[in-house]
Design a protein around this nucleic acid. Sequence first.
DNA 1: AGCACGCCGACT
DNA 2: GTCGGCGTGCTC
Length: 661
Amino acid sequence: MTKANSTLEILLPLALRHGYDYLPPPDILMPIRGQIVEVPLGRRREWGVVWGQGQGDVDPAKLKTIHAIADLPVLPVPLCQFIDWVADYTLAPRGMVLKMVFGTKAHLRTKKARKVFSAPRLKPDHITPTLNSAQQKATDALLALQRQQKFTVSLLDGVTGSGKTEVYMEAIAETLRRGEQALVLFPEIAMTTALVERFTARFGAKPILWHSDIGAAERYAAWHQILSGEASLIIGARSALFLPMPKLGLIVVDEEHEASYKQDESVTYHARDMAIVRAHLQKCQIILASATPSLETMINCQNGKYNHLQLPFRFGTATLPEIKLLDLRDKKMRATEFLSPELRANLIKTHAVGQQAMLFLNRRGYAPLTLCRHCGHRMRCQSCNSWLTLHQSKNKFLCHHCGYHEPAVTTCPACKQEGYMAASGPGVERLCEEVQSFMPAARLAMMTSDSMASPKAAKDLLEKMTAGDIDILIGTQMMAKGFHFPNLAFVGVVDADFALGGGDPRAAERMFQLLQQVSGRAGRAHIEGSVAIQTCQPQHKVMQALAKGDRDMFYAAELEERKQYRLPPFARLAALILSGADEVAVEKAARKIIAKAPKIEGLEILGPAPAPLSFRRGLHRWRILVISEKPLSSILQNWLSACPRPRQIDLHIDIDPYSFY
DNA sequence: AGCACGCCGACT
DNA sequence: GTCGGCGTGCTC
């Protein structure tokens, strides 16, 4: 008979809700919680973490003994609590969250050969920055909070170019002085050489970088430096939030409003929200920075939960651009043209005085739809219910939802008629063509995820733009990200209506943030900037707030609407997505779940219905939306555990969904 | 995540 | 006859 408490629960980095029970190693000291150990599993060995006492309900004959204790520091207690918290909140198996902490098995495998790495020491006072009065005031507030050594949330709210980075760098400096670790999260970090250089210049040595493009050797070294506490400053994408930082003293989430902080695959978590939880468990300060804060963050400032620190002015002499709305409804434009006479005139004028312009359209490729004017056939994806986008630069039709592509054709695949295939709607490639038609001498370049795919291509493009070798940059939201082009005077938004009116409760907010960010590209140095926005809905609150430069007006109106319709941040959402190859089976599984829905006051269930993208990557998808006043995790846990479903049907639980495809 | 087990098609 | 495809299920 095994005593219930003589075993240890070992959490393994596998898709398991709980750890497995193991006997402690015979002749070694009893391992403690957070200790990394190697255990036998089946006929292999696996690294895991001591999670606590064993359950004690396992057949003693099955019990195996811990094989070895890793020669590594113990995972910090607040990190173990964080793993539990994230798993409970997202309904992900605990083991999958641990897997994110481990990063890759390679970090643990080569235990004997593990080299000793030493991280360069960062100097908190390498340079003494010059701050303006608003920056100094915000810095003083952050430093005062940082010295309290407790959980506090601050929003660093400042327009593009107001110098937020310099301010939070001072909070980082204070963290370094105390010998603690600072973590800075960015939404996209792949092309941030300029950013790393700023940190290196400020602290006299390179910070640790953490994102998906980091090579195995560098990643391995970084992980061990972080766990040993040697690495003091970590700059990373959302996955860096799960790094084992034993001396974590500060978290910064830059561009906190960015939707790319939400992970939709595997464990679905929002890195900004989880960062706040980690700071809470760690009892440390967290700083959110943005020029266009999320509504969630704004309401927490309004009700006093967060410290609201504002940087109202642009650094130096730069001013904010004037924004003008161009009502597309009174323009008589051809179906093959997308730039109104006013927008064209603006481009020509800007070019004539030797300044740069930018055209923003959130559509990659040449045209979002190609159809046959003879038989009406439309080019569509075989694995998704979506149109194929024509990419002229690649001479291909591409599906933007899966990897599917096929060669571009001029003969209709359905009726075999030649010369009837017609592009419908604009893409950035088509805009290039249009601009070139009336400005043949202008030098154009495209900036999209396609043209920024390789770091070298991205660097070349940015250098050309900064050097003035490009007159007009035409691109997608890729352009909205904090690039600084000193000679950029005019920004044209080709279609500001693209996302409004869908089923996404955050569509207006996202649109406002995106257009504000795009607009912020104009007039960043000594040039006065201007912005023109083409829209069919000039009365929409997003457009009105942009034109008036009145951010508060937008937030107030949007908050009122969210409150009225019980949407976030006034209610909690969860999306249950069922998918499978057999459409009938998917629907059946969805209806089974609905049949077992709990009756709880304040809990609203919408659906089941085919998901907005009801067929994707060869799988049929049905969706159930859950809206609740109370936290959803435990409700869903109880509800769904009573809903068995066939193996062929996948259930994806998305807590706080941001994607409504 | 591995790794075995198991139940059907084509090969030394 | 058996080699091997990958669906299904288990690992304390």
